[in-house]
Computed example of a mutant assay.
Amino acid sequence: MTAREIVDRVRAGDLDHEAALDALTGVPTAEVDAALGTALEEQFDRLFRHGWQPLELHRVIARRGNPIQARLVADAATAFLRGREPVDERWRDQVGRIPRNERRSDRIAVLDAQLDLLCELGRLPAVEILIPPPGTPATTVHHHGDRRILDRVRALLAKAEATDFPAEAESYSAKAQELITRYRIEEVTAPAVDVTPFARRIGVDHPYEGEKASLLDAVARANTCRTVWSPELGFSTVFGFDTDIDAVELLYTSLLVQANRAMTRDEPSRGRARVKAFRRSFLVAYALRIGERLRQVAEREFAGHGDLLPVLRNREVQVHEAAERAFPRTVRARGRRVDSLEGWESGRAAADEANLR
């Protein structure tokens, strides 16, 4: 068989991985490289043209634990830019932010990684196009206000996550929350411009992906956003306005760090099953309580701006409609099971201690 025939049989499922690897080692190197290179390029081209962004595809592949495959995604994203205009700056920026691993690997390891990656890419479906791929007309996303505020928020939250002193962490996080609220109110009260809701995919990592997705949803709903969780792909799509999604992503990331710290501190020291039940129950309770607290914060912060309520309701309707258009058929997730009262109570307590005003 030629290299191309071997690769095609792998893609069709007619030849298993190990047999294909053995067969390819007996084919001239140049022929193998050309066949595998073309097949991988076809798959990357399909995925990039049908919604996948550089960083999210890299994340999905990198979490499988093979650095060779992660490097192949990085190289493919860079190659996909060549000769394609116009390029949306968000797409180009993601290519530049992909981590690079330049370590060399032996040829058999590379062939093995390429074959496995080819099968994995073939299983990935098309997703919603949120950023136009290179070669298609770019879109303009309105960013209101001073983006440097978000840099200050990130810095404050990083300090809150790093300190071991609760009072100090509370001070940093309270200031961050004030800046986020000011940033959101600034956009709502800005002169009328053509601003519409859009979407952003946020990765949700294992373990306990479902519970973490619930935390993201709680943070999103408190900030007039909606989420759709795609468990098979490991991310949630967050719908909302630009400023609100920025707040959601920042708060979710920080609260997850705080949750992990509290969970590790309070979990039982023995019994794998007991620890697992504790952690799941902890995260369920944590997400529910955080949602309650964030809604209370939002209501209090906007209480002095009663004139904004009609605007906020209109934005919420627009966000709901955007999510419905993108995902007309969704299934409401079942409530998360709680198997550990100890974990539930610890999660509620940790959420009450979480750093937000």
Rank of each mutant, 00 (worst) to 15 (best):
E161Y: 14
Y183H: 12
Y183W: 13
D246R: 11
P137W: 13
L251S: 12
V141M: 12
R201C: 11
E186S: 12
A174F: 02
P191T: 09
Y172M: 04
E249F: 08
Y172P: 01
D146K: 09
L215W: 09
E186I: 02
I245K: 03
I245T: 02
A162Y: 12
V141N: 08
E232K: 06
G203T: 15
E187Y: 02
A158P: 02
F198Y: 09
E170C: 02
A220F: 03
R221V: 12
I149N: 06
A218W: 01
V228E: 14
V193I: 06
F198K: 03
L150D: 07
R147V: 02
I202D: 08
D151E: 10
Y208Q: 04
I180T: 03
K175H: 13
F239P: 04
I245L: 07
R152D: 09
T253D: 07
R221L: 14
H144R: 02
L233Y: 09
G145M: 10
E161R: 15
V188D: 06
A169I: 03
I149L: 14
S214M: 00
T139D: 11
T253E: 06
H142W: 12
R226K: 14
L150T: 03
V193F: 08
V195H: 02
F239G: 02
G203I: 14
W229S: 08
G203P: 08
T237D: 04
T253V: 01
E209Y: 00
A176G: 07
R147T: 05
T224P: 00
T181K: 00
H142L: 15
L256E: 10
A222T: 05
Y208L: 14
T140G: 09
V238H: 04
I245C: 04
S173M: 07
P191E: 14
D244T: 01
G210F: 09
V195W: 01
P231R: 08
T196I: 06
